[in-house]
Simulated scan of single mutants.
Amino acid sequence: MRVSASGGIVLVTGEREVEEAIRLVLATAPGERPTRPDFGCAIHDMVFAPVNEETAGRIAYEVRTSLDRWEPRIEVSDVVVTVAPDEGAALFIDIRYEIRGTNNPRNLVFPFYVIPSHDDPSTESEDS
């Protein structure tokens, strides 16, 4: 649902509807919805994980697994996780997919923020 230019409520359709559904799956942590406790994506378990290759790989796996399960309208071709260039606490999840029955490749970038550990020497200031 969206607010129209005139202030009314409108429903999204087509490719935009699929994009919103992907964002909903990724933004929901499993257990967050009492009536559907399995719904969502387990990337939220990695909020306190270090920003490294292992975490990026696990996030890519969780994204692919959750979208395969919860969004049958798409075929995920690739999930690439990169560290934001200016921020060490942000990861960009680039999901490359195709809506089934079309030959229209699409992508969606979903930002994911981690909370760096105070024990991690790479996050401490030089004055310490």
Rank of each mutant, 00 (worst) to 15 (best):
D86T: 13
V80G: 00
D38S: 14
T35S: 12
V80H: 09
E71F: 05
E124Q: 15
F39C: 10
I59L: 10
G8W: 05
F48K: 01
T55C: 05
L67Q: 02
D94R: 15
I43A: 01
A29E: 13
P111N: 08
S122E: 13
P34V: 15
E98D: 07
E15V: 11
I74K: 00
I22D: 06
A21E: 04
T123N: 14
R100D: 01
L26F: 08
E20F: 07
G40I: 07
V51H: 00
G14N: 09
P105C: 11
F39Q: 06
E20S: 13
P30I: 02
T13K: 10
N107H: 15
D78W: 03
I43Y: 00
R96G: 03
E71W: 03
S128C: 02
E20I: 04
V114L: 10
F48E: 03
R33E: 09
R73G: 04
G40E: 07
P116H: 09
R16K: 14
A29N: 08
S77W: 03
G31A: 03
G101I: 06
Y97N: 01
S125E: 11
T28W: 05
G101Q: 06
A56R: 13
V83L: 11
R58T: 10
R64D: 08
V79W: 07
F92L: 12
D127S: 13
P121D: 04
V76R: 02
V109A: 11
I74E: 00
L67P: 01
R100S: 05
E126N: 02
A27T: 12
I9M: 15
P116V: 10
G88C: 02
E20M: 07
V81N: 07
D94I: 04
I9R: 14
T13C: 03
R2A: 14
A60M: 06
G31I: 00
F39H: 07
P34I: 14
D78A: 15
M46W: 12
A89V: 01
G101L: 08
A56Q: 13
S128F: 11
A42M: 10
F39W: 05
P37N: 05
T28Q: 06
E71K: 01
P30S: 09
A89Q: 08
M46Q: 11
A56F: 07
S125L: 10
I115P: 00
W70T: 01
R100A: 10
S128T: 11
Y61H: 11
A21K: 01
N107I: 00
T102R: 03
L11T: 05
